[in-house]
Amino acid sequence: MGKRAFVDFWIRPRDVDVAKKMCERAVKLGYSALVVEASKPMLEELKSDVKGYGLELYSKAVVSVRARSDVLEAAVKFRHNHDVLTMQCLTRDAALVALRDGRVDTVALRPSDLMTFDRHMLSVTRNSIELMLVDAISDVAALQKMRSLVRFIDIKGLSVVFSSSASSPVEQRGPFEAACLINALGLNFERSLDALSTVPLNILFRNRAKLSGKMVQEGVWFVEG
């Protein structure tokens, strides 16, 4: 456990004070990076406040999409302004596009949504699927739906990211607790740990490289000689 760096891939604080408390708690729980859904000025203020914590902060855009065109528009609009772009799909059509689009980093599948997940959707998936802790702790029905989704993910060997999606410090959990929870839902423990460390770290590394211009496209890098 000790050598891994853990990332909480989604926190959504209401204001800077709450965000600061969440950063303090994240450091205590053992995270080394946080992905924050917040406005640019708020994120800049937060970055200056938590400089001494040894915590890396990244920005995240979460967009709820209903149609195929919404996915494409959102990808154009948000891709170059944020470190991470997550789509929350409300319909199957939107999900089918978001799961394949190379500009989308993760697709948040919420068990509380009316949309159901089927084998076809998961067989065309290219992007990581994001599951949230707040859904797991919300009610038993959501937990049951999450379990069936985790089984699909496990069978298909898809990439999965687990985030807290917390809006207050009480909703945050440590990486070991979170990994144990996904493990209890049916995913191998190593893959559960990867969902909190390797997979999100790779996404962040790739996106920072893209935004800084070092990476032109997947697999194409600028090399300084």
Partner: peptide, 20 residues
């Protein structure tokens, strides 16, 4: 057991979490 502890969100009407 750790997963079950992580799922706890309120105790005795108080909004809390339990950290392992």
């Amino acid at each position: 057991l750790v997963a079950a502890i992580a799922l706890i969100k309120d105790i005795g009407g108080e909004n809390v979490s339990l950290d392992v």
